[in-house]
Amino acid sequence: MAKIKFKLNDKFVELDTDPNRRLLDVLRDDFNLTGPKEGCGEGECGACAVLMDQKIINSCCTPLANVIDKEIITIEGFSKTKKFEVIKDAYAKTGGVQCGFCTPGMIIATESLLNKNPHPTDFEIKIGLSGNLCRCTGYNLIIEAVKEAAKAGDGLW
């Protein structure tokens, strides 16, 4: 057991818990943040993705110990931002959502990508999404959504 402090969706939080727990479980079980999903439990599918210091990570592969003093933003936190609104509208407009299980992770991947590269090429978008598996869409409409978000949100990132 250890005291673990980090910033979660704009609030400082402190837990007295096992640092060997997975961030994903802490988010879902301790904070009831169920937007991040478990799809594979081993960092392949990206359904569990969250932002750590603005960058996408897989919360299923992140021990809580590695979150100390970091800033974590889940889809619940991100959905309160203006950037989210732009990305959401883009996904809706292009039809990038089907079953929705990969979607929160895709949105996080989109944000992480645009943060680093506000005007990505198609190839850069594919790299940016390459750790997020979607079985429904064949990815094309998701790629369109990222392009649309980059365009509509020009200046935001």
Binding site: G43, G46, A49, M52, K55, I56, I57, N58, C61, T62, N66, A109, S112, L113, I127, G128, S130, G131, N132
Partner: peptide
């Protein structure tokens, strides 16, 4: 490194 895993894994 660009060929390794995914952006999320590469971040950690």
């Amino acid at each position: 490194i660009l060929e390794m895993a995914s952006p999320a894994i590469r971040h950690t």
